[in-house]
Amino acid sequence: MKQGFAAMQDWLSGKINYHTARNISFAISRLVRDEKDLVKKRFYQPFSPLMASPHVNTIASGKQTLQ
């Protein structure tokens, strides 16, 4: 989660592109998918789309297009 937050902050400040935050989002999705504990699964599940929000915001704003 700390890496995701740091990546999002770096993206928003223009230090990196959105790929880092998006890749962290994918990693969280994989962790959630493989998690056996239902409570942990439900807790971590909303973090994946949150980490990808810079990616969605970039495309929605027209700064980046889907390729």
Rank of each mutant, 00 (worst) to 15 (best):
R30E: 12
S13E: 08
Y44L: 15
P46I: 10
D34P: 03
S13L: 14
L31P: 02
D37L: 01
K36E: 14
S29I: 08
A21W: 05
L31N: 12
I16S: 02
T20E: 15
N17D: 13
I24T: 14
I24G: 05
G14I: 02
G14S: 03
D34M: 00
F47A: 10
R30G: 02
H19E: 12
R30I: 10
G14R: 00
K15P: 02
F43A: 09
S25I: 11
A27D: 15
S48T: 15
L50R: 03
R30C: 05
D34N: 08
L50S: 08
Q45L: 15
P46N: 03
P49N: 00
N23Q: 15
Q45K: 07
S29Q: 13
L50V: 15
A21C: 09
I16H: 01
N23P: 10
K15I: 08
T20K: 09
L31A: 10
D37Y: 04
Q45M: 08
F47Y: 15
P49V: 06
I28Y: 13
N17A: 10
H19A: 13
F26S: 12
F43R: 09
D37A: 05
G14A: 01
K40I: 09
D37E: 06
S13R: 12
V39L: 04
D34S: 08
K36N: 13
L38N: 07
N17E: 12
P49M: 05
Y18I: 07
V32A: 02
S25Y: 03
R30H: 11
R22C: 11
P46W: 01
P49E: 04
E35V: 01
S29V: 06
S13P: 00
Y18Q: 14
H19G: 07
I16K: 00
